[in-house]
Design a protein around this nucleic acid. Structure first.
Lengths: 210, 210
DNA sequence: TTTTTTCTGTTGCATAAGTCACATATTATG
DNA sequence: CATAATATGTGACTTATGCAACAGAAAAAA
C-alpha cells in the first residue's frame, strides 16, 4: 500500500528555510485534525496509525479511511458538505506534517532540497492514496456482511503474505470500518467459523479456504 | 467536480513530438478498457461519460465509478485483485487519451509544450479524482437505501444549483451505483414520495425538504 | 491491587432490503 | 412501421441485517 521511501528520515535529515510546514506529534486517541473545509489542509502521516472517523446525527460512527505510514490526508481531498463531524483520530502515537495545498503547489523559490524531494515523491504518495480509496470502495460495494468480511480478510492476508494474521483493528472498529452493525458482524463471523471458512482464535484470524 | 481547464481544446491545439499517447473515440456502450493489472494504463476522458463497472461471479453489476469530462482513470489506480471483471464502458460517445504511467512520470526530454501543460494540470485532475472518490465513499457508507438516495439527490442538486433536476442515470444504473437492489430502491423511492420528501415526474426529481 | 471502562460474544425481535415474478412503458433496431 | 429489447413500476414472500439488551472477558485507569 505504501511506498518504501521514508519521508520521516528525510525530514529529520534536511531542514528547509522556506518550509512553513508544521510537524506535530500526537498520542493515542488524540484528535489530529477536523475537516472543516476552509484551510485546504494537507497532511502527511510520518509515523503511527490514524483513522478518519465520521459521527452522524444518529450517533453512528463510521471509520471512513484508515491511514498508516506515509498516507496523505486532509481537507483538500474532501469537498463533501454534510452536517456530520469528520475527525482524524490517532490510533497509536503519531507524527504528522501539516501543510496547506498552496504551500505544496507552488515550487520553492529558494530551490531548497526539502521541497525538491517532497515534490518528487508526492505523485507516488498520491497514487497510493487513490489505490487505497479504490480498494476501500471495492470493499464497501461487497453485497453482504459475509462478503465484506471475506474480502477484508483476504486483503490483510495478501498484505501479510499469510493465511494467518492478527487483526490490526478491534472488532468494534472493524464493524465501523465495514459499515455494518457490530452484533450482526459477530453473528456472521460465527457462521463463517461454522462453515469452516475462517477460524478465529482471540485476535488471530486463520483463513481455511483454497 | 471537474476543473474548468479544457484539456481537449489544448490537445487539439498542440501537437507533441515525443507524445506516445493514443487518442481514441468510442460510441455509446462500447468498452473503453478493461482492468487487467499489467499495462499501468492511465486514461483521461476528454469528452463524454463513462462508468467503471464490475461484474461479479453471481452476475451482480456494480457501477464502481462514474467518469465525466476530464476524469482520469485506469489500471495505475487499481491494485485490487479479485476475480471480478472490471470494465470501463462508454455511457455516451467518448474521446479518451491513453497513456502509461511511465510516459507521464518522466519529464519530456524534448521540452515540448504539450507535456509541460499536461504536467502542470495533472495534479489538479488528480486532486479532483480524490475528492470524487471520497464523495463516493461518503455515499456508499450511508446506512440505508433512503439515506443513499437522499445523499445522491443532494449531490446532484448542489451540482446543478437547483432542487429540481433530471436524473443523469437510468434508475437501473442508479441502483447499481448505490449498490442496492433495484426493486428495493424503487420501493424506497415510492416511500420518499409518500413522505413528501421527494417528488418524481418521469426522469425529473424534485426535492421538497428545507 | 481494585475499580472502572471498553471490548467481546450472544440472544430475541423488528424491519429493511433482497429475490422473484410479472405487467406496462419506453426506447432501440431491423 | 413493427418487433425486439430494455427500463420502469409494483406486489408477495424470504432473508439478512439492524437494534436493544445483557453477561463475561479483557484492558485501562486509579
Amino acid at each position: 500500500m505504501n511506498t518504501n521511501f521514508n519521508i520521516e528520515n528525510f525530514i529529520y535529515t534536511f531542514s528547509c528555510d522556506c518550509n512553513k510546514a508544521q510537524k506535530k506529534t500526537f498520542s493515542k486517541n488524540q484528535v489530529i485534525t477536523t475537516y472543516i473545509q476552509k484551510r485546504n489542509q494537507l497532511c502527511i502521516l510520518l509515523s503511527g496509525n490514524a483513522d478518519l472517523v465520521r459521527y452522524d446525527l444518529n450517533g453512528n460512527r463510521t471509520i471512513v479511511e484508515h491511514f498508516s505510514k506515509n498516507a496523505i490526508f486532509g481537507e483538500v481531498f474532501y469537498k463533501v458538505t454534510t452536517n456530520n463531524e469528520l475527525l482524524v483520530e490517532a490510533r497509536s502515537n503519531c507524527t504528522v506534517l501539516f501543510y496547506t495545498y498552496d504551500q505544496l503547489k507552488k515550487p520553492c523559490t529558494k530551490g531548497c532540497e526539502f521541497h525538491k524531494i517532497l515534490a518528487e515523491h508526492l505523485p507516488e504518495l498520491i497514487l497510493n492514496k487513490i489505490t487505497d480509496l479504490n480498494t476501500r470502495i471495492e470493499l464497501l460495494t461487497q453485497r453482504s456482511t459475509r462478503d465484506k468480511l471475506l474480502m477484508y480478510f483476504s486483503l490483510i492476508s495478501t498484505r501479510k503474505l499469510s493465511k494467518t494474521f492478527e487483526l490490526p483493528l478491534s472488532l468494534t472498529d472493524l464493524a465501523d470500518y465495514l459499515n455494518v452493525d457490530r452484533s450482526a458482524m459477530m453473528r456472521e463471523l460465527k457462521l463463517l467459523k461454522e462453515d469452516k471458512l475462517v477460524d478465529k482464535i482471540g485476535n488471530r484470524i486463520i483463513l481455511l479456504y483454497e
